[in-house]
Simulated assay, not measured.
Amino acid sequence: MLDVPWPASTEDRPGRRAGPPGLAGWCLRVVRSRLFEVAIVVLIMANGVVLGVETYRDLGPAGPVLQWLEWVFRAAFVAEIAVRVLAYGRRPQDFFRHGWNVFDFVVTAAIFLPGLHGDSALLRVVRVARMLRLVRFSPGLRTIVAALLRSLPGVAGFLALAGVTLYVYGMAGWLIFGRAQPEQYGDIGRSLLTLFVLLSLETLPDLVEQGMALSPWTLVYYVSYVIITVNLLLNILIAVIVNSMEEARRLEMTERLAPGHDEDGDGVPDEVDRIALTQRLDDLWAVIAELERELRIDRDDRPPRPRRDPG
């Protein structure tokens, strides 16, 4: 289900039985319903089918029908955004506090910009961008996108290291093979392109054979390149992405556990607080049991604790 946060007042927080009244309450119930999500997903997929059909030539009488369907999609997506905004009641600006909402609004509103009419390429790009909206309806896809975004700093460091490594090997390749193989290593540009294609290892047998014809020592160049770049660097990239995937999955689980509940205002959802408190109590009981075993205290032999008079 999609999380549509309600204004953070004491009586209208998500999860409360008393929901917002009137039109806002109806819109909130609609947005949180499973049928609404399924309908939007079907519309997005139908929009993709129409875009695919439009790539064929000589559509004949189907052309006007496809144009009519495009206007139906526009009206439906505008109505969807309107319902989502109205679900925020007296704080419609909170709609833009969430990244996916902003993306949906931009993709829907961009279709009405001046100049985006007819059969322009930019208009088709905007229409194709609607297909990306399917990501918000799939927790798995959201986790992957969040992981890719969280891995950007690590990927940037990896790209810097990979760029330096490729440049060093490119210069070495130009010095070693520049005269013998000018098509592959004639300058730094061709050398870098050859090494980049070599990352797939498809051209490795041919390059090794050409290098061995020049000198057996060229095998050291290619073996070291494959070990450092193909094995080591690519494994580092995979490790960065996998680590970001785990962090994004933990974040997704935390958001599912507590969609907006934070009564104490500490920034940690209440459900997570309860889980942490339960774990601490379990640890405390384990420590008490260990102390009882060390002190050899028998629970059955201890005198009962005196009861306090409630009066």
Rank of each mutant, 00 (worst) to 15 (best):
D301I: 03
V287H: 14
S191C: 06
I40S: 00
F158I: 06
A289W: 09
S224T: 13
P139Y: 03
R179Q: 11
E183K: 07
Q67H: 09
R142G: 02
F158W: 15
R280T: 01
L2P: 07
P259D: 02
P64I: 08
W174L: 10
W68M: 11
R84T: 09
L234F: 15
F137P: 01
A286E: 12
A248K: 00
L51R: 00
A109K: 13
V197W: 11
N101W: 03
P61I: 02
L166N: 00
V41I: 06
F36D: 02
G63V: 10
R293M: 04
L148I: 09
Y225I: 02
G89Q: 02
M45V: 09
T229H: 11
L66P: 03
I238E: 15
W71C: 10
L219R: 05
G154S: 08
L257V: 04
D282T: 15
P92T: 11
D12P: 07
D264T: 13
G189S: 06
H117E: 14
G154F: 03
N231W: 11
F196P: 04
E246V: 15
V168T: 04
V38Y: 08
P61L: 01
L234T: 09
D264C: 12
Y167N: 05
A75K: 05
V223F: 07
L69P: 00
H98M: 04
I227F: 12
L86W: 08
A39V: 12
A289H: 09
S120M: 08
A8Y: 12
P153E: 02
R97C: 05
A75C: 10
P306D: 00
F112I: 07
N243H: 14
G52F: 03
R17I: 05
I288V: 13
F137N: 00
T229S: 08
R32S: 07
L152H: 05
R124S: 10
E252T: 10
